[in-house]
Amino acid sequence: MSQSEAGVVLAADRHHAHHFNTANEEFDACKQGMWIFLVTEVLFFSGLFVAYAVLRVFNPEMMHEAHHLLNWKMGALNTVILITSSLTMALAVSSTQRGNIDKAVKLLWVTLICAGGFLIVKYFEYAHKFHEGILPGAQWHYEELKIAKAPLFFSVYFVMTGIHGLHVIIGMAIIYWLIRRAKRGEFGPAYFTPVEITGLYWHFVDLVWIFLFPLLYLVS
């Protein structure tokens, strides 16, 4: 989806904020801003990945036992769903750039539905865990797995997937907002900044899951 920065030429008469010289400059600034934001996101998640690594290095057997309680089939299904949504998001961006707004709106809807599907699968996983008492830390009351520190694996699991799920929900809200604006005819080859930078965000959310899935579901 990504177009080289030099290749982006926004219409010279396109409206832009007063402190930018050109619409192109504004686009570049927004894109750079989103990249830096994604760097902060990487560091935000990095704390969790470090906590995971520490737990795993010191308790490899516990991690192995505890991860069997996760349903890897559901995780794999969600991986497919999110990768699909990343594809449709990328196609939505390129459709917007080409001025095919009807198609872009449809693709954004598909992205939104995929995101919803992801959350539904997640809901069934969570509900099952809650029902069994497979809960983080002090909340744990699942009797069948007696290995020490197993609740900590689920602390990490719930915090990581919970925060990731929050990112999915925020992404859904933004994508819905994009659909509204696209339908009002605000986007086109002359102006597609919000679509493009939302795309960057959405790929990041997808990428986090691609790390979470093997680390949590496929430990062995």
Binding site: A51, L55, P136, G137, A138, Q139, A148, K149, P151, L152, S155, V156, F158, V159
Partner: peptide
């Protein structure tokens, strides 16, 4: 919630 990652009592 008592997630326990920093809590020695919970490991």
């Amino acid at each position: 919630l008592g997630i326990g990652i920093f809590d020695p009592k919970l490991g």
